[in-house]
Design a protein around this nucleic acid. Structure first.
Lengths: 194, 194
DNA sequence: AAAAGGCATTGATCTGAATCAATGGTTTTT
DNA sequence: AAAAACCATTGATTCAGATCAATGCCTTTT
């Protein structure tokens, strides 16, 4: 259990002994989520960071017109949370729900704090994790300003080839800040030119 | 010297003794930059993280049409770098230059690595720093998808009231992903409605 | 098995931002 | 002090993506 979670330490060159894994394991809680089930709703306080062992989730905000805007997908190996709410204890501005039946590893606020204090490698893990997330988001922001929509979609399909198969197209449009009709037309354009 | 730099530790509730400050100071290099001078050019390898003690800088990419796209401003108390290039040693994709005569504190790659290894509080500082940057960027990305341009500009002026006075308007347009003409019209619209 | 709901696609039209162009003011250079 | 470069603003026009609308397919519900 928690294979992928521990794998994500190894991916960052953080080597854990069996004892260390045992120790960390005590701070973790497994959780299964059915498709369409919420992990977090806007207004609630985000109590956990979730690591995805299996399945797929989305994080999104809802604007004043009731439209959803997806800011992140999370599949196997990804971490998802309303980090601002988690860290500050303020009401969440994002919703998180499952796009497929999913298996998560949850880290509570107290678990996170204790792990950070007591276990140096966990702080390093956290630092590398957030650094990677920062760089990915910076790249995404830059793509929005410098690339055409076609290029951005092709980028998306190469970076997340799996998600394209698993997630409805209108959600990819939402992630890209487009209307579903627009993404449909972009895809047609691309398929014609090939 | 380095007042603001050490202040940014205190802001994060990281208390440093005089001895610790002395120790850190040995890893830092001061640098002055004239207005319009480059700190980093696309294609070079980013050798340092820069903390701004005084002045203002911008970080931007240049697209295939030669247009500039500003992804970040940095004024007093901010940190600026092409983090991807710094961490991987690959060629930088961003340019950084000074918008005013500026005074920086530079942290080299080796200094960063040694500080991370030898001084736990520095790793914590780094972690909190990148976490704040991540949250700010996430908020910015969400604003792009959920707010009108007017709202985004008003947000910008409240979050960075100083930058508005110090930076040419067309650069703020670039940061927002707009044409200068469009931002000018938005501003007129806002001033009329008040 | 039938009905309902969700989804991708396509067409027609509208609209907000980009583009092109000109002007006057301000700052920088010489 | 004059010339040059830079910049914000305004007007006219264009265009890409949004919106409105309809259709057929597929999946889920009953």
């Amino acid at each position: 259990m928690y294979e992928l979670f521990f794998q994500s330490f190894a991916d960052k060159k953080i080597i854990l002994t069996l004892e260390e894994k045992e120790m960390i394991r005590k701070y973790l809680t497994p959780k299964k989520l059915r498709k369409k089930q919420y992990l977090l709703q806007e207004g609630d306080i985000c109590k956990t960071i979730a690591f995805v062992e299996k399945g797929a989730l989305r994080e999104y905000s809802i604007d004043e017109n009731g439209a959803e805007h997806i800011i992140q997908f999370a599949i196997e190996g990804w971490t998802i949370s309303d980090l601002f709410s988690f860290l500050t204890g303020e009401a969440a501005t994002y919703n998180i729900d499952a796009l497929e039946d999913s298996e998560l590893v949850l880290i509570s606020k107290s678990a996170n704090e204790e792990l950070l204090q007591r276990f140096h490698k966990y702080e390093t893990y956290t630092r590398l994790q957030i650094t990677g997330a920062y760089l990915a988001m910076q790249k995404r922001l830059n793509s929005i300003n410098t690339l055409t929509i076609e290029e951005r979609y092709l980028d998306f399909t190469t970076i997340y080839p799996n998600i394209t198969q698993r997630v409805p197209q209108h959600m990819i449009a939402s992630y890209m800040g487009l209307q579903p009709e627009t993404l449909s037309r972009i895809r047609r354009k691309i398929s014609v030119s090939k």
